[in-house]
Design a protein around this nucleic acid. Structure first.
Lengths: 259, 259
DNA sequence: CGGTCATTGTGCCTTTTGGCCTATTTCCTG
DNA sequence: CAGGAAATAGGCCAAAAGGCACAATGACCG
């Protein structure tokens, strides 16, 4: 099994949490879960251009070409902005309805001599996503390989989340949220000041709504059912005396005196 | 395979690093590596009496009896004081020259209805050792089960070491990125400056959209059909490389540095 | 003059929201 | 202990938004 080597890389990755080599160790670990020919690491934002973080066994030239041109066609990028959901994303899972996918594969991947790709999308603060991409030159990823990554994904995410916490200035001993991987630690102060009439949970919802998440994503993030999210929304709207999400955005605009 | 459940427990353990539930999650994780009937957690020191930290599916009475009497016969305790080396320690690996082992097995384990035991010894600061013991009532541990624990041991140790670091007051990162404050907002025709790639008509649409008007209202205001508004929207979204109205609001937030 | 683009418009279909219910569980408070 | 929020979940229906395809008109431009 390849798993023997894996434990070592995992231990190293845990040890590297909160240090500058965190991402490298993370790549080592994820990379040792399934074989791959090259690795690229990119940061996606909903509103900004992607950033190229690192690559291994990949050419600087192609990395540049990605940032110059091809990021627009990157279906993983589109996926993140649409879904805003971390996870294991195989190239072939990206919808056929995505017209950009064709050009990305036909041109960019072909030029990079890549035949298959799988993305490990990790939340990276704000609206960012840290995308770690494992690429193969000749053999497609098998289902069981994807399954392996899916099984381990919670570990990847937990490690990166821990690193994020370790980087934050207020990393202190506290109680973990009841639902693992779910609740955000503290609701943003902005919403608290703006809408004191809302409960803390409702403000959590508002924060996620204002970050642009649809109900399904919010439900996943909070570990609750989509129906519950709708219910929260209804009560929030009622309390704020509005009827649509738009008006919530308008209230923020008003607060910040935006035309 | 039991490994599917393992990834979950590992992710939880990582997430619990630095929190009060760290040891519990560590037990969950280690415990999910091999089957066992009960778990005990003890802290060994070279110079002091052992401390009973936790136990699962074990009687308080036996725990008390251990601390009163039997700890002196505990061959794991002797092992730690002699070797001072963390690792996976199966009961049968403890030297036959250890006279105390016999009495420990014959009396204490027998009374506890334990037939085999394996210790996971982790460094715990100073001269302390955190010992997590997996006990079986009927079946002995097989070699491959011990091997599994040995493979994963580096992970157990790294996690506990990380928790120790997280508890220390000086666990910090050197470079913390500066947080941008709320920027001042200048009121004017925002849309023109923000989205030069849009036509004038499209910018008119955007202005109305950002004022919170639904399609029907926009259509009335502009004296065009609702379908046309939808059509405009589609092209606007395409040009801005977004798919929903939300993202338009997010772009404005972005521009004005709103949290 | 032909090509491109902006603008207007339709039609059909799917997904997402929003409105309006009922219900259970938990926790806090009078 | 009763009563009431708060949080959870689900169902049903209507409205709105979004995706896609296609088409007609006019303006501008090389």
């Amino acid at each position: 099994m390849n798993s023997n080597g894996f434990w070592k890389t995992l231990a190293d990755a845990i040890a590297a949490t909160g240090t500058d080599s965190h991402v490298d160790r993370l790549i080592d670990m994820i990379g040792s879960s399934v074989p791959q020919d090259l690795v690229t690491v990119v940061r996606y934002s909903v509103t900004r251009k992607p950033e190229f973080i690192k690559h291994r066994r990949y050419s600087d030239e192609m990395a540049g070409r990605y940032l110059d041109t091809y990021y627009v066609f990157d279906p993983f990028y589109a996926y993140w902005r649409r879904e805003r959901r971390p996870g294991i994303v195989p190239l072939n899972s990206l919808a056929d309805d995505d017209a950009k996918r064709g050009r990305y594969i036909a041109e960019f991947l072909a030029q990079s001599e890549i035949c298959d790709e799988v993305g490990v999308l990790l939340e990276d603060g704000e609206d960012w996503c840290l995308g770690i991409f494992l690429d193969r030159s000749t053999k497609m990823y098998r289902d069981d390989e994807i399954e392996t990554l899916r099984n381990r994904f919670a570990v990847f995410a937990a490690l990166h989340e821990l690193d994020t916490r370790a980087q934050a200035p207020d990393f202190r001993r506290t109680d973990v949220p009841a639902v693992p991987g779910a609740a955000p630690v503290n609701a943003s102060q902005a919403s608290a000041a703006l809408w004191p009439e809302l409960s803390t949970r409702e403000r959590e919802l508002v924060d996620l709504i204002l970050k642009g998440h649809p109900n399904a994503t919010i439900a996943t993030k909070l570990g609750i059912a989509a129906g519950t999210v709708k219910n929260h929304r209804a009560r929030i709207y009622e309390k704020l005396d509005i009827t649509t999400e738009r008006e919530l955005f308008l209230q923020v605009f008003q607060q910040y005196h935006i035309p």
